[in-house]
Nucleic acid binder design. Structure first.
Length: 648
RNA sequence: GCUGCUGUAGCUCAGAGGUAGAGCACUCCCUUGGUAAGGGAGAGGUCGAGAGUUCAAUUCUCUCCAGCAGCACCA
């Protein structure tokens, strides 16, 4: 048999018989490494210890110390161990797929009865038993026909379907965890005992469609999380608790920002506090847009179906539109209107009034447009995913050669706004032509190039999402990362030559002839509702001072301080600070607690001493120590903080 | 929309086939207290909506509505 050369991480090379496995290589180095080994990297590829190596390669043996492969294997083996546990408990259950996901894994099962929380406990216990058995993991490559026959025999129709969809040139690999067997591309651990038995937890069970297709069978998906050790699991569970504490639905209630009720599903009742956040943010956006050369418009909510037919929305999105029929006695026929699901067709109507010259371009038209979309009930989520919302929408009507500079300008605009709002970690994705599309390849080439050049011009890198663009044009998506590592796609910019065509927008060029403008659909926050939800969760309710609905509470310690408290409130209000007095007959402890829970950033406490000295004792949210300050000094300090970032 | 779970006082939740309970919040009284809950008393509910079974339903069954988790969706 021929020899092959293996190159080790330290650069050394040794020759081995062709077909040697990493397990044998590890055993040749030391017995302890052979025991500790979990997998290998062969030419950078994650490689099972049992897989033979057929040609000259680089090799590195992985142990539990190598985080990425270790987590991958632990989670992947747990998926198999869970499937085995389930089939041992309920032999009739059909297995399907069980991939590794962020923080853990899931496995989809077909079973007539639903899994209960008690079942999860049983499964978890059985999994621990299997881990303790330290059953060997084995693998073989099988001929396709044999594998299909095997699964027909054992009554696993989903596996048969999976094999049939594996491309013909790929091997069909079988794995065994003890006697239990599954189809799997691997790699896996050496034996089940390599999985840490105390670092995983089954989290939940939920429905999921077979192969993600809503027209196919609904399976039951069990989710688990897993780590390399108990401590990492504990940290993860703490993080989940932290996320639950930040839940904007809970904080929205506690801070009296908004509520929702079943008579208006997916729509927000903004309370005084929440509406203050909303209008403060909107005022800020309005000033920023004006500064960046936008004109602001406002267009109708309820628009006749004719316009939606012309724009193409009636055909494509009718199911998701709120349709309003007016059937008054005096009407000859029913008028059919729809609440606008977006603002662009209306903006084109504004554009179309009067002849436009090339000198009018680029025309940047903005609207805080209230839209309504009939979202599927299961999609609704607090104020993050709603049926009634307001976009910070804008459309830039421009000539083709203006796409790049206008896009670059928008990116700079958005960067400034995200920074002002405290988001410094965000990325750009460029979605390119999808399979189903209109327009020539040359047009797509130039539109995609224009967006890429704009990112470069603005000084930002971007990732390409192949085929993810809209049918009418490519788009940029701006995704920000929050304080606990979650991603939110907020901003967007889409190139559209289609809608100006459909709605017959035009301008007179320098050549005296009519031309079509291109529209850039763009938004920075997305919707106010969702963005405020993100802000609440980002800050765990502790909004930056300028956005906080109640910035200062002046809390009296003794009732003799009431008059002075009123004066302090008036002084602060005059300085532009949102302040209110708390004169209730309660102890200062009580007031501090209540307003801390309500996330008021500053509490000013007033007792006999402050009244006599005309001072205030200031306490910041989350800080234990207090400062005694002159009233005028406090007013000046807080007035500065109360200014929105663009006015500082 | 699909699967599963849930719906009892403003909030968080307990409860049982014979028309309901706690803590906090609320109102009043006492207390004027120095930085995350001072004490006492009181008031507050068509038990999500409708239908069915039953002598009797908030409790059991069905339908609907809404919410939660996930999936699908997100112009």
């Amino acid at each position: 048999m021929a020899d092959i050369f293996l190159t080790f991480p330290d650069g050394s090379q040794r020759n081995f018989a062709q077909g040697i496995t990493p397990a044998e290589v590890a055993a040749g180095i030391s017995t302890s490494l052979a025991k500790k080994a979990i997998s290998a990297q062969v030419n950078g590829e994650h490689w099972d210890l049992q897989w033979p190596i057929e040609s000259d390669s680089s090799i590195a043996i992985n142990t539990m110390k190598d985080e990425a492969p270790a987590l991958e294997l632990v989670r992947h083996d747990l998926a198999h161990i869970m499937a085995r546990a389930v089939q041992e408990l309920w032999p009739d259950v059909k297995v399907t797929i069980g991939p590794v996901i962020q923080h853990g894994w899931y496995y989809d099962f077909d079973r007539a009865e639903p899994f209960t929380p008690e079942d999860l406990g049983l499964i978890e216990k059985k999994m621990k038993d299997i881990i303790n058995l330290r059953d060997e993991v084995k693998t073989e490559v099988w001929p396709r026909e044999k594998a299909i026959a095997h699964y027909r025999e054992t009554g696993e129709p989903y596996k048969v379907e999976l094999i049939e969809s594996i491309p013909g040139d790929e091997p069909i690999r079988m794995y065994w965890h003890g006697a239990w067997q599954d189809l799997c591309r691997g790699p896996h651990l050496q034996h089940t005992g390599q999985v840490p038995g105390d670092a995983f937890k089954l989290m939940s069970v939920a429905g999921a469609y077979w192969r993600g297709d809503s027209s196919r069978a609904m399976l039951q998906r069990i989710y688990g999380v897993a780590f390399r050790n108990k401590e990492d699991l504990r940290k993860h569970l703490n993080m989940l608790e932290e996320a639950a504490k930040r839940d904007h639905r809970k904080l929205g209630r506690e801070m009296e920002l908004f509520h929702m009720q079943e008579e208006a599903p997916g729509q927000v009742f903004w309370h005084p506090n929440g509406w203050k956040v909303y209008t403060t943010l909107q005022d800020y956006m309005r000033r920023m847009q004006e500064r960046d050369g936008y004109v602001e418009v406002n267009t109708p909510q309820l628009v006749n179906r004719k316009l939606w037919e012309e724009s193409g929305h009636w055909d494509k999105y009718q199911e998701n539109m709120f349709i309003v029929e007016v059937d008054e006695d005096h009407a000859r026929e029913k008028a059919i209107n729809a609440l606008k699901p977006m603002n662009c067709p209306c903006h084109v109507q504004v554009f179309n009034q009067g002849l436009k010259s090339y000198r009018d371009l680029p025309l940047r038209m903005a609207e805080f447009g209230s839209c309504a979309r009939y979202e599927p009930s299961g999609a609704l989520h607090g104020i993050m995913r709603v049926r009634g919302f307001t976009q910070d929408d804008g459309h830039i009507f421009c000539a083709e050669d203006q796409i790049t500079p206008e896009t670059a300008k928008f990116i700079a605009f958005l960067a400034r706004i995200y920074a002002d709002l405290g988001f410094h970690d965000w990325t750009i994705k460029l979605s390119t032509r999808p399979e189903q599309r209109i327009g020539s390849d040359e047009t797509w080439d130039s539109m995609e190039t224009a967006l890429g050049e704009a990112c470069n011009a603005a000084g930002y890198e971007f990732e390409i999402l192949e085929g993810e663009g809209a049918f009418y044009g490519p788009k940029l998506e701006f995704t920000l990362t929050d304080a606990i590592g979650r991603n939110w796609q907020c901003g967007t910019l889409q190139v559209d030559a289609n809608l100006p065509e459909r709605l017959d927008a035009s301008f007179i060029g320098a050549d005296g002839a009519k031309h079509r403008p291109v529209m850039l659909h763009r938004a920075c926050l997305g919707s106010f509702e969702r963005f405020i939800g993100i802000l609440i969760e980002e800050h765990a309710g502790k909004l930056p001072f300028w956005l906080a609905p109640r910035q200062v509470v002046v809390a009296t310690i003794v009732s003799e301080a009431d008059d002075y408290a009123r004066e302090v409130v008036e002084t602060l209000k005059a300085a532009g600070v949102r302040a209110e007095a708390d004169l209730r007959n309660e102890k200062i402890n009580y007031k501090v607690r209540e307003h801390s829970v309500g996330k008021v950033p500053v509490i000013l406490a007033l007792g006999h001493r402050e009244v006599e000295e005309r001072t205030v004792t200031l306490r910041r949210l989350g800080e234990k120590q207090t400062r005694v300050l002159e009233l005028d000094a406090v007013a000046a300090e807080l007035a500065g903080e109360a200014l929105p970032p663009d006015l500082r």
